[in-house]
Every structure is written in C-alpha cells, then in structure tokens.
C-alpha cells in the first residue's frame, strides 16, 4: 500500500426518495504515471489507482477505468439516485493490489 493514502467523500446525509444527489470524492495518492525518470535517469515504475467504483445498496452508480493522465490525488464528481435509505460504498483499486474503501449513509425521509 502506498504511503499516506486517505480517501475523502462528500455526500448529503439526507435525500428525498428518488432524488439525484451530487457526490464528490478525493483520495490522496501520488498516481505515478510511469513516464517520469529518477535523478539517475531510470524510469520510475507506474503506480496508480486504476479503478474507482461507487455503489448504492449494491447497485452500481459509476465504475471508472482510470489511466495515468488522471492527476495526483484523484478527484471525481458525479450523481447518484437515492431511492431509499441506504449506504453509498466507494472503492479505489491500486496497481499494487491495495483496495481503499469509504462509505456514507444517506437517509430518506
């Protein structure tokens, strides 16, 4: 696992039934592109988060395939429909096999 990886998620605590809510996510990660060189001229191996998913109560909201042109500390903004009270689950998949998670409860009513 890369050092200092920390996810942040912004989601509303409450929503109306069927409302589309805006979600924002950011995770601290260096996203080493595999294009840069060390001072000694050797290539720094690629090490990025290559996939991000958001699910609501097991239903897929968005599944993102990520490439090296995503900036350091990857940021996403998108919308999810909240049909009922439940849990948003956020998952980031690292090249090195690490998986990072966060979750937010959204209450309807």
């Amino acid at each position: 696992m890369a050092d200092g990886v920390k996810p942040r998620v912004k989601a509303p605590a409450k929503a109306a039934a069927g409302e589309a809510v805006v979600l924002k996510t950011l995770i601290s990660h260096v996203m080493e592109s595999g294009q840069r060189k060390n001072k000694d001229g050797s290539l720094i191996p690629r090490s990025i988060i290559n996939r991000f998913t958001c699910e609501f109560n097991g239903t897929m909201v968005v599944d993102v395939e990520m490439h090296p042109a995503i900036s350091t500390n990857p940021y996403f903004e998108f919308e999810a429909v909240i049909p009922a009270t439940g849990e948003l689950k956020f998952t980031w998949y690292d090249d090195d096999g690490s998986v990072y998670n966060d979750a937010k409860m959204v209450t309807v009513g």
Binding site: T59, V61, V64, P68, A69
Partner: peptide, 23 residues
Amino acid sequence: TPGVATFNFGEGAGAHSASTRMR
C-alpha cells in the same frame, strides 16, 4: 499515453455526467 478515464454509468447513476482532474 492518451488515456484519461472511462466512466461507465450504472443503474444507480443520476445524470450521466462526471468531472475529474487530468494531466
């Protein structure tokens, strides 16, 4: 390497829109 991202929208998606930051 031109790839930035591919957004696949699921059944739970609101508007089919997304933002990110790229190099």
